[in-house]
């Protein structure tokens, strides 16, 4: 078990002894005391077998789930004391989700999908369209602004999702099996994009069960039975 790291101002995300208990007939500890510190600009992968608690960890870091116990700090904000609606606001501002199944709004164009987080953040329309356009250009889709998701390939959809995750300049990019639905060539391109984003200073947390994918990160957190089993630092 890893030692409990000190929370520093440099942390994008910090978990302190986080527990998450589900009551399904009998109590199950999906997270049984996890402490984790993600420094700003770091690239971390989370690996673990199914049922290890890595999904719950993602949900807690992304403020979709609330810990039964323990503290979560994200972008300098202590999330444990927030109301539901404040958590939604912080989630929109500080967390950028990238999902295995892309999760784009099917009836919105690529541009509107990327602009959506800015809609809820209250960014004025001209400004968010301009920023969405620049983000789509950044991920190489400057010529697909007005395409609907079903008019795009899997790799292109995931690029739109990544652009959307960057919309509000979040403290952390949370990628849950981002290459799980892509062929290997497309996967490589998407992972190369994450590498670039990391190089540009973004903080990335990537959940995967593939060693090859996890090795793009600076370190790998191995999770088992709701605990951090070990943290592996990679040298490149």
């Amino acid at each position: 078990m890893a030692t409990v790291p000190e929370t520093t101002v440099e942390s994008a995300v910090s978990l302190r002894d986080v527990r998450r208990r589900y009551d399904r007939g009998e109590p199950v500890d999906a997270l049984a005391g996890v402490s984790l510190d993600l420094p700003r600009g770091s690239y971390t992968a989370v690996m673990g077998p199914s049922g290890s608690g890595k999904s719950t960890l993602m949900n807690v870091v992304g403020l979709l789930d609330t810990p039964t116990d323990g503290a979560v700090t994200i972008g300098g904000t202590d999330a444990s004391s927030l109301s539901e609606s404040e958590r939604a606001r912080v989630r929109g501002a500080e967390v950028g989700f990238v999902f295995q199944t892309f999760n784009l709004m099917p009836r919105l164009t690529a541009l509107d999908n990327v602009a959506l987080p800015m809609v809820f953040a209250g960014v004025p329309r001209p400004e968010r369209r301009e920023r969405a356009r620049r983000l789509l250009e950044r991920v190489g889709l400057g010529d697909r602004l007005d395409h609907l998701p079903n008019e795009l390939s899997g790799g292109q959809r995931q690029r739109v999702a990544i652009a959307r995750a960057l919309a509000n300049d979040p403290a952390i990019l949370l990628a849950d099996e981002p290459t799980g639905n892509l062929d290997s060539a497309t996967s490589d391109a998407v992972l190369a994009l994450f590498d670039e984003l990391h190089t540009e200073g973004n903080t990335v947390l990537l959940v995967t069960h593939e060693r090859a994918v996890a090795e793009h990160a600076e370190r790998i957190v191995h999770v088992l039975d709701g605990r951090v089993e070990r943290v592996e630092t990679l040298r490149r």
Binding site: G62, R89, R91, N103, L104, M105, L116, F120, A167, N168
Partner: peptide, 16 residues
């Protein structure tokens, strides 16, 4: 339902 999940994931509050 999934679209609702997406909206919430990108920062929509319940009232949105």
């Amino acid at each position: 339902t999934r679209e609702i999940g997406i909206m919430k994931a990108v920062g929509a509050r319940d009232r949105d």
